[in-house]
């Protein structure tokens, strides 16, 4: 099927660049750690209470 062809083509294209892609992945993990540190600063302090008190009525 044509759509499978297309998907396979894009997979091949990705495999060609896999070697360059790896360092980017690692950098992304570091960035994730930095991001989590940043989020720690703004995260609701009492998660349990925050979640418990978030009650909505149904809508629509």
């Amino acid at each position: 099927m044509a759509e499978r062809e297309q998907s396979r083509r894009s997979k091949e294209a990705e495999q060609d660049t896999e070697e360059e892609a790896l360092p980017v992945e690692r950098e992304s993990d570091e960035k994730l750690d930095e991001l989590l540190d940043e989020i720690d600063q703004v995260l609701e302090e009492n998660a349990e209470e925050f979640v418990r008190n978030y009650i909505q009525k149904g809508g629509e």
Binding site: K31, E34, L35, E38, I39, V42, L43, E44, A47, E48, F50, V51, R52, Y54
Partner: peptide
């Protein structure tokens, strides 16, 4: 519960609190 709190806060419309906004900002 921290994970549910993160889930909820992803959607906060306040740009200071929104986790989505943090992700875009970075």
């Amino acid at each position: 519960p921290k994970l549910r709190a993160l889930d909820l806060q992803y959607h906060d419309v306040d740009p200071e609190r929104s986790l989505h906004r943090r992700l875009v900002g970075r």
